[in-house]
Every structure is written in structure tokens, then in C-alpha cells.
Design a protein around this nucleic acid. Structure first.
Lengths: 203, 203
DNA sequence: TACTAAATCTAATACCAATTAGAATCTAAC
DNA sequence: GTTAGATTCTAATTGGTATTAGATTTAGTA
């Protein structure tokens, strides 16, 4: 009978290579965009030749799809972790802070994946867009629910449109990836100010 | 002696074609990104063959440069018009609203040009980025001054970082181009809510 | 009508892209 | 050490790209 190694080790190796390729792809997609990133470039960064990528991924589109999928998954997971640290029955204000912290953390700590999602908005093949739509919409739905809670609690004023507010917040958060430099403000500082300004304004 | 027409009319025609090409280029750059927009596509949209573009523009990069240049110019001009409608010695609050209205108006009324600037952030050749940097930084500087005024007037609280606040506001505004649909909220509604939330918060 | 200059087109160049099939190599078990 | 399977490479295919030079067309003038 064969030892577990014979089954597991090859799988692990394969998985490791896949992840390496995905990481390099995310890096290049986020910095140069989908179209101007070449498979040759990705392959070179992963110490391979372009043709070899096809052993792991069936096409460039499939590669991009998986990068985007992981990106949204990562944001969603990080937000989930922040929420888990709250007591059940958390208030809107607590939830908002957790959402902001999670979303920002994901964006600023793993910029290669997340900025691929953010920057390549209208510029990817429709097939790829469709493939990641479900996950994207599910995450958006979580934000919608949070906003509804804020309205129900009365924390969001009557004359503030909660969907517009959601778009404002997400705009701020996503845009951070454009200007954020790791040696600048800490994520914590950003979370505090974002939460403060959205709840209380600047004055 | 030749009539003015001989001098002016050809110039006008040439200028008209240039503008047509620029418009189509902006449209395609904004929707597909720099790399995946082909000169053939732009030319076709402008009722020409690809080679003919070179009579008007020396290269693809030059075309993109001019689109980006016009984009920033347009935002800057629109903000300028809003500011001119204020009395001299306008307050920070008045100024902020005018800036928000100008920036949003420019973005939402001429999305082809402005989203080219916004979406193609890290994905254009460095030569092009350098070419538009001065104008971009000048516009940013105007925002910085407004924020300083807010701090001086005491409208921006002591514990709010005015530069971070500026990045928040610009993030919101720029991100609008991602989700805005012309048949939705009016620009005025957005301006009112944005100003309100940034000044007073949502609660 | 014939001339001129502006505007556009044609056709070719040189290059780089994604993708594929089959050969070569590497790995690990027997 | 041999063998089988997993992994990578080589080399070719196909198609698209920006750019250019020179020919052609168009529009206005006299």
C-alpha cells in the first residue's frame, strides 16, 4: 500500500506552483492591467516559459478570473473575521467600523489581488466579469444589509440616502489603494478617521 | 489678397477632425483601457483608416496624452467656473460645495474623458504619466489650499487630518464614475448629500 | 478646367501576443 | 536503474499591433 506521500506530495507541489503563478499574475495585472500583461511576463516572473502556464491554467482569461475571485474572497473573508470578533447583536456603529477595518485591511495588505479587482473595472473581457459577478454581488449585499440596519437603528438620519452613503464609503475605501503608501499612516489611523468622519462629519 | 476663409476654413476643418478623433479615442480609452484600444478601432469610429490618424497625431501615446490633458483641464475648468460664481472671500463651506459640484459635474457630464484619467491610473506608459503630471499636481494643490482654509477657519476639527479628508472626498467623487448611471440621481442630489455627510456625518 | 495643398488611404514592415502539439526532462516509486 | 507519470520546454501557428512611405483622393482657388 502506498504511503500518503505518494498522493499528497504531488498535489502540494502542483498547488504551490499554481499559487506562485497566481501571485505573479496578480502583481502584473494590478500594475499593468489585463491587456498589457503578457503570459510571457507572468511566466518569467514565476521562473517558467510561457507555454508551461497552460499545464496549470487553460487560458489567460481563466488566470484573471481566478485572481479576481481570490481578490473578492479575500476582502469578504477579512471583513468576516472582523465581524466575528464582535458580540452577536452588534450595533450599526460597531459593524460599520468592522466593515471599514476589514475592507481596508484586505486592500492595503494584499494590494496585488485587490487592486486588480478595483482598477480593472471596465477593462476585462465580459466572460471574466460574468464569472466573478456572483461573489461580487454577494459581498455588496452584505454592505446593503449593514446600511439597512443603520437606517433601522436611526443612526443614519432620515435625509441621508443609505445606498448613496454606502457608495460614498466604498469609494473612499477603494480609492485608498490608489494613493496609499505602506510607510505612511497606519491602517488603524485610517479606520478611525474614516469612521469618525462618516458618522460625525469633519466639523 | 486671399479672403479670411482660405486661412481659417482649413484650420477649422482640421481642428474639427482632431476633436472628433480625440472624442472617439477618449470613449474607447475609457471603456477598454489604453492597451486594448487599437488605433484601428479609434480610426474606424472616426470614419478613417488607422494610418490616417498619423496626419493628426504623431503616436498613440501622444493621443492618450492629449486626452488625459483635456480631461484634467476640463475638471479644473469646471471647478473654476463654480468658484467664480461665489463672492470673493467665500467660506470653506461654500468653497467645498463648489469644488464638489465642479468636480462631480465634470466627471459625470463628460465621462469619456474623465474616466480615462481615473481608470487608467497605473496602467499607462510612464512618458504619458509624466506629460500630464504638472497639470494634475496643480489641480491637487488647489484642493490642498481649500483644506488649509477649512482648518484655519476651524470648520475642520482639530482631530481630523485635513489631507486625509481631502483624499476621502476625492475618492468618493472619483469613484462616482464607476457606478453612476445618468438616469439615476441628479448631480444636485449627489452634491447635497456629499457635502452634508462630509460636513455633518450621517447621524 | 487645371492647379495646389490638405487630408486620407494603401500596402508593407517588423514585432509581439496567445495558444498548441509534441519532445524533453524531472521525480519518485519499485 | 528502470519505468511511469507529472511537469516543463521548444518551436511553430495564427493573428493582431503600431508605425511608415508613398500613392491617391478631396476641396478650394483662379
Amino acid at each position: 500500500m502506498s504511503s500518503p506521500i505518494t498522493q499528497i506530495k504531488p498535489v502540494l507541489k502542483k498547488e504551490k506552483t499554481r499559487l506562485l503563478i497566481l501571485d505573479k499574475a496578480a502583481q502584473m495585472f494590478s500594475r499593468q492591467g489585463y491587456q498589457s500583461t503578457s503570459l510571457k511576463g507572468i511566466a518569467t516572473a514565476a521562473n517558467m516559459k510561457a507555454g508551461s502556464l497552460y499545464y496549470h491554467f487553460p487560458s489567460k482569461e481563466a488566470l484573471m478570473t481566478e485572481v479576481l475571485d481570490k481578490s473578492i474572497q479575500f476582502i469578504s473573508d477579512t471583513v468576516g473575521e472582523e465581524i466575528e470578533q464582535l458580540d452577536d447583536g452588534y450595533t450599526f456603529t460597531e459593524g460599520l467600523k468592522a466593515y471599514i477595518r476589514g475592507h481596508l485591511t484586505a486592500i492595503l495588505k494584499h494590494p496585488d489581488y485587490t487592486t486588480t479587482t478595483i482598477r480593472n473595472n471596465g477593462q476585462i473581457p465580459k466572460a471574466v466579469q460574468l464569472a466573478v459577478r456572483v461573489k461580487r454581488e454577494h459581498y455588496e449585499q452584505q454592505w446593503r444589509k449593514l446600511m439597512t440596519q443603520g437606517k433601522a437603528e436611526g443612526v443614519i438620519r432620515k435625509d441621508v440616502d443609505e445606498q448613496l452613503l454606502r457608495l460614498m464609503i466604498l469609494g473612499c475605501l477603494n480609492w485608498s489603494s490608489v494613493w496609499y503608501k505602506p510607510n505612511g499612516d497606519s491602517i488603524n489611523t485610517l479606520v478611525e478617521q474614516y469612521t469618525d468622519v462618516f458618522l460625525n462629519g469633519c466639523q
